[in-house]
Amino acid sequence: MKPPSVGVLGGGPWGLALARAATHGPCETWLHSRRQQDADVPGVRVTRELAELAQCRLILVAVPSNLARSVASELGHHLDGSHVVVHGIRGLSGPELTTVSQIFREETPARRLGALGGPVQADELAAGRPSAMVVASEFAEVAAAVRDALQSDRLQIQAIRDLRGLEWASALVGCLSIGIGYGQARGDVSAGLLAALISRAVDEAATIAVAAGADENTFYGLGGYGDLLASMALVDRPEVVLGRELANGVGLAEAREKARLRVEAVELVPRVVAFAKLNGVDCPIMNAIAAILDGSGDAAPITRALFRG
């Protein structure tokens, strides 16, 4: 039996990396991209037509979070209930903190939805260096399809059921990474203190996400802690850069420029704080990050937060 084909939607670094990873698997790989590709990816068929991409039953979506809804809406015209749609988008949308899978649920007929997360980085994946990622879906067959398409001796894929939890973990790790960049750049935050803050921050993030229906265990796994630990080493991660620049006294606008890529967490942090407040969850670290972002605080509230309670 011919293995089903896999389609990647999004021609940015993350989409290209996923397409490359898929070429190591048994499936025929398609890439939908609106960009003029500088170089063709070997083994990948490029298309500009969503209808053509929809010939693939497994579709991996890797577009910026602010485009998620418009892309889903367009894609929806070409799908039916047999498609498996898995996104690798970090973010929660609007004041309701809608997850990306929920957006796909609202905009497309696809029901078998999933998300990718975890510490894997686009450049590692593209270069074929050993790495690990998480796929979450309430449907076991979604995780199986992703594993069949992407798993290799260079890419370990852990499957979990908690789709909502992984999406929240990915988004909140983005927020907390700003704090990591900030803490690392401050002379008065020692390595031990930073580690303590991170542990506390993961616990806090888990508590917030539990209020949204997530499973806290997801936060203590590859999709939460694992992802956040990568931020410790990734000096170029946009969120880390942004935090570092803010610690150095640079204004928010300039710090965002230095981060180069769009940091969605800047808008997300105040919304998460509002959500936590509404649900009666105490979140001193997220509050402190919000204060850093709006320029009303410095490192002190973060450390104070640690020693509260």
Binding site: M1, P4, R57, L58, S73, G76, H77, D80, G81, S82, V84, R105, E106, E107, T108, P109, R111, R112, F139, A140, E141, A145
Partner: peptide, 27 residues
């Protein structure tokens, strides 16, 4: 109908990635 009100082939929800109608207790 999907959430946008489009007509969807009902059988597509029980087709696997190869397009076959399948019995899958977990799904």
């Amino acid at each position: 109908l999907d959430a946008r009100g489009r007509v969807v082939d009902t059988s597509s929800f029980v087709r696997d990635v190869t397009g076959e109608v399948s019995v899958d207790a977990d799904r």
